[in-house]
Amino acid sequence: MNGKKRSYRMVPYLFLLPYLFAFITFRFGPSIAGFFVSLTRWNIVGQAKFVGFRNFIDLFQDPNFIKSLINTLYFMLLTVPALVIGGLMIAMLVDQPLRGRTATRTFVFMPYVIMSTVVGVIWLWIFDAQYGILNYYIGLLGIRPIAWLSNVNWAMPAVAIATIWWTIGFNMILFLAGLQDIPNELKEAARIDGASSWQTFWNITLPLLRPTTIIVVMLTLINTFQVFAQVYVMTGGGPEMATLTVVQYMYVQSFQYYRLGYGSAISYIVFVFLVGLILLERGLLKKSGDLD
């Protein structure tokens, strides 16, 4: 009796065991370990040497790191507003009772299932300075050809364009789900009261969409802050480090120069930024009373 009861008590842990093993070994453990690595000077061969917060201090005096941070923020400035506002506008468009809206949703979302590096390769070809199709079409509009990916001023916008094309469908889906949660009666009622479409959008749709909007903004910020694969393929961080991003710098430091401690410190700075963004989100959600 007693034995049976004890074995029954063990059951939850048996159910948890396989997952917790994987979680601790491959997710939780490494996340903690990363912090300790970031406190060392460690060049893969040889011993790790404890240096305290030296790596973090060095990072903020490292012009290349500052450059990568500024580049990443610039990339976010180029992509986040377009992805959020554009995503919302497309969602509202395909929410209308129009023939072909389902097909439009499918087409807009389709790029999202393509691998990041394939997206890079496709746009490498489109942006080709000499033979690229984009330069041909802007040429028809009378614009001189642009060396998109090898021009310091254009490389980042080019990567941004490819990224917006690739991921806007994701935001569209999230906004669409939010829009469909808004009861139609509300909009109906507003219309009967004589509100214009613009007033309905501004006073009813947008406020009710607030929780969705906050989530979309946050996911977009998080994903764009971690941009890496497209840049790796399209520009390799160039020209003249104009597209070097934070995660790419982490990759270069950790796995090309094998400065593991320094690289880990960069990844922890990414972490701190993301936590900051998430806390901001929590604050916003609390303020709007959607989260208890």
């Binding site: 453990g29 490494p30 996340s31 990363g34 982490m250 880990s264 990844s267 922890y268 972490f271």
Partner: peptide, 9 residues
């Protein structure tokens, strides 16, 4: 916690 943090370990 971003996945990049786990990469080196």
């Amino acid at each position: 916690v971003p996945i990049q943090v786990t990469i080196v370990p």
